[in-house]
């Protein structure tokens, strides 16, 4: 009995300690961001591996999500004779929800896992310790550029996802199913509000970018320095990011669109 309590206490203390470590780590990362200014090359290189290499999966998934939304929306709307509203359905669901959320999930799978594995492997091969030996702060040299690159990339990727998705919905709805192209766009422009819909979607993607990048670099930095530990850090990155993004999405949606 005592053993069980001890184990429970140990487990929860470990969790709380990890939570605290994560936040202290975030503060250190944020504090070292200004020191990146004189060396933008570091960030550019990370932007390439985090942002440019994620482009393909984002664009392709955005297109397919748009196709599916177009088809599904059409099948439902045509029953009410409201297929002209297809554009609104596609655009609103992409801009408000699917754009930021699906991009964040894909981002965690494509870029977040890679970041965690990279940093975790640096740690397990003692490259981070080596940097410290040379009086180079690994957070400033390794972590901060990756965090910043992820933070910058996410909103851009989410915007791309939404745009490609809307065009995908337009392609299916107007090209294949015969919704009037003019009605499609004019309904979108009449119903989608810049501040309420587009800007809130962008805010969501900024928040998700922050959280996803933070989790990825922290899991990598905090990984147990063995090959198994790196593997587990990668898994945890994807799982924790997905949970955090979906949970945060609910809170943000309630705050933004709840009207209370």
């Amino acid at each position: 009995m005592i053993g069980l309590l001890q184990a429970l206490g140990h487990w929860s203390l470990a969790r709380v300690a990890r939570l605290g470590r994560g936040h202290l780590f975030l503060v250190r990362t944020l504090a070292s961001l200004p020191r990146l200014l004189p060396r933008p090359g570091l960030v550019v290189r990370e932007l390439f591996s985090v942002g440019v290499l994620s482009l393909l999966i984002i664009v392709v998934s955005g297109g397919f999500v748009g196709f599916v939304l177009g088809l599904q929306g059409y099948v439902t709307l045509v029953r009410f004779g409201a297929e002209e509203s297809l554009g609104v359905v596609v655009a609103l669901s992409l801009v408000r929800e699917l754009g930021p959320v699906v991009t964040a999930l894909l981002f965690a799978g494509r870029a977040g896992s890679a970041l965690a594995a990279e940093i975790g492997l640096m740690k397990s091969t003692e490259q981070l310790a080596g940097l410290e030996m040379m009086a180079v702060d690994p957070i400033e040299r390794v972590v901060a550029p990756r965090f910043l690159a992820g933070f910058i990339s996410m909103p851009l990727l989410a915007a791309l996802f939404s745009v490609v998705g809307v065009w995908g919905g337009f392609f299916v709805g107007s090209g294949l199913l015969g919704v009037d192209a003019g009605a499609f766009w004019s309904q979108i422009q009449a119903q989608v509000d810049f501040r309420d819909d587009v800007l809130n979607g962008v805010i969501k993607s900024v928040v998700f970018g922050f959280v996803a990048s933070w989790i990825a670099v922290f899991e990598g930095y905090d990984a147990v320095p063995t090959s198994e530990g790196v593997g587990r850090a990668t898994t945890r990155t994807v799982v924790n990011t997905a949970l955090a993004v979906l949970g945060l999405d609910f809170i943000l949606t309630a705050l933004m669109f709840g009207n209370f």
């Binding site: 290189r45 851009l156 809307v166």
Partner: peptide, 30 residues
């Protein structure tokens, strides 16, 4: 490095272009 810089520049331009498109074509800002 130069190639990477160009690709990153294109990526950022593409993303900003998408944001612009969202603002102008998908919403009522215009």
């Amino acid at each position: 490095d130069r190639k990477i810089e160009i690709l990153v520049g294109m990526f950022v331009a593409l993303g900003l272009g998408a944001l612009f498109l969202l603002a102008m074509q998908v919403s009522n800002l215009s």
